[in-house]
């Protein structure tokens, strides 16, 4: 390892060292209703289903039978992406191993874009071990003649239920 670092240091001795450009600023908050609408549009475009429920009980009913739903940490409106951080890889199987994957979220989870989502995740990943997945629609492949096929190896169906009232109330 020391040898690798020494080799790199030697290779770069005397190199021009351009500055790192500032990170793009995260977008401003935005109206949750608009963010939810955008999220729903993008999620359906990616092949997922977006539902709104008044309570967690209603959300569970709407999500339908099957494995218990998972909770989404963030919803990225710009791309219809669900973000979820797990404590371990094993724990993450809940959103991978079944045919159907359901996430519940509250409107606090909505963020406008990827930059904002990354800014929210940074403290978790700076603090120590972390495993975060960004999921956009059900699993897919286009490896045979570029024909889009759903599902690939992961879930066949992705449902996101936005719970209007805060969860647990």
């Amino acid at each position: 390892m020391d040898r690798l670092l020494a080799d790199v240091r030697r290779a770069l001795a005397g190199a021009d060292r351009p500055e790192l450009p500032p990170a793009p600023p995260p977008a401003a908050g935005g109206d949750p209703a608009l963010l939810a609408e955008r999220f729903g549009t993008e999620l359906s475009r990616a092949g997922g289903r977006f539902l709104v429920a008044a309570s967690e009980a209603e959300a569970r009913a709407a999500a339908g039978p099957g494995a218990p739903p998972d909770r989404a940490d963030l919803l990225i409106a710009e791309t219809g992406t669900v973000v979820r951080s797990y404590a371990s890889a094993r724990e993450s199987r809940v959103s991978l191993w079944d045919e159907r994957c359901v996430f519940l979220a509250t409107s606090e989870a909505l963020v406008p874009d990827l930059a904002t989502a990354l800014a929210r995740l940074a403290p978790i990943h700076r603090a120590g071990r972390a495993y975060t997945v960004f999921v956009t629609g059900p699993s897919r492949t286009a490896d045979i003649e570029k024909v889009l096929v759903i599902p690939a190896h992961g879930p066949r169906e992705l449902v996101v239920v936005l719970v209007r009232a805060p969860a647990g109330c």
Binding site: I76, E78, T79, H125, Y131
Partner: peptide
Amino acid sequence: ATGQRFPGTVSLISGPVS
């Protein structure tokens, strides 16, 4: 690479999670 707005899945793995 694929013309998608975002990939189907992105995993961020910090440290041993298994």
